[in-house]
Design a protein around this nucleic acid. Structure first.
Length: 311
DNA sequence: TATCCAAGGTAAGTT
DNA sequence: AACTTACCTTGGATA
């Protein structure tokens, strides 16, 4: 599977067009595992300044945004977001990195809580991402009981072994595998990629999507809690992973994935929100974090705590 | 050097 | 419906 593409075009998005933005925080905060740093320092040092590092990925066609596969590289400079891509990626980057969000308005709309204030101050400019749904679903199935650097490594291996190889300007890029490509994998082969007990989950979920039995994108048409229930039909997907897909791919900004870090934050800062069940605790913390944009608050708090910001 | 532990949880079995 | 337990693998902590 190899395809020859055109060469890379180049361009830039002026900073003044997008408002507050932090590319490193956006792409290394554990929301997306689908980008790479060609300098090999992805997740190397949580707090080290990413400076003007390049990030790159291969994006599948996305309905209403781009009708073809795009190889895109991006980096943040002082006065612009520079890009290199196989076709003009500005609408695509706007979609993937939520450059169309009015971040100041969103942060202003969240409640005045000390923990949120500190997280927002530390990483102001971080955006939520809009990952392609299938890749996002697989990424977070892999995330169970795993460290972020290893989740990222798994996705790299999946792309390398099962995705299309694209050559651009003499360099090779690996697209994330399609449902068909991943459904054809065997459990033992996926275990060799160090997926562990997640291997059969990934294969069977890919098969469900490939067969047309269900598709993560279909959850976008449902109300929030119904959408979460819909996603849990996939193998290896419980409430937490479902919330991640809703938040990081399908635009449900109210979703608050209850991971270990947020559960710690609830225990330490918002004990009244612990209602026993996922469903009720989720409702409580969602309300505590301001409702419609609670997912933004969750993601800032997650990154802040995981990066040791509380220390 | 050996052992233990936890990492962005979920499925399957029990009560 | 709530509660247990097993599950792959590995880097870093502890003895």
């Amino acid at each position: 599977m190899e395809r020859e593409s055109a060469t890379l075009e180049t361009g830039a998005i002026p900073r003044s067009d997008v408002g507050p933005f932090d590319l490193q925080a956006t792409l290394e905060s554990g929301q997306s595992y689908l980008w790479d740093r060609p300098d090999g320092r992805m997740y190397d040092s949580l707090s080290a300044h990413g400076g003007d590092a390049w990030y790159e990925t291969v994006v599948p066609p996305i309905d209403g945004v781009s009708d073809e596969q795009v190889v895109v590289r991006v980096r943040q400079c002082d006065d612009a977001i520079e890009w290199e891509a196989t076709t003009d990626p500005v609408p695509l980057l706007t979609h993937l990195l939520r450059l169309d969000d009015d971040l100041d308005a969103i942060l202003d709309a969240t409640p005045d809580l000390p923990l949120l204030e500190r997280a927002y101050d530390r990483y102001r400019g971080m955006r939520l991402v809009r990952d392609p749904p299938f890749a996002c679903l697989i990424s977070f199935i892999c995330s169970a009981q795993m460290r972020v650097a290893r989740i990222h490594e798994m996705q790299r291996r999946l792309a390398h072994d099962y995705g299309e190889t694209v050559s651009v300007d003499g360099r090779q890029y690996h697209a994330f595998p399609t449902p068909d490509q991943l459904a054809a994998a065997t459990e033992s082969a996926l275990r060799e990629l160090k997926l562990g007990y997640r291997a059969p989950y990934v294969q069977r979920t890919a098969e469900m999507v490939a067969d047309g039995e269900a598709h993560p994108a279909r959850a976008a048409d449902l109300d929030y809690e119904a959408a979460r229930d819909y996603l849990t039909q996939f193998v290896g997907v419980g409430d937490k992973v479902a919330d991640c897909v809703l938040l990081f791919s399908l635009g449900f900004l109210e979703a608050v994935p209850l991971d270990t870090w947020i559960q710690t934050a609830i225990a330490d800062h918002y004990p009244d929100c612990d209602r026993g069940s996922y469903r009720e605790t989720s409702r409580a913390i969602r309300e505590q974090f301001g409702g419609a944009y609670a997912g933004y608050a969750q993601t800032y708090v997650f990154y802040y705590l995981r990066a040791g910001g509380a220390a």
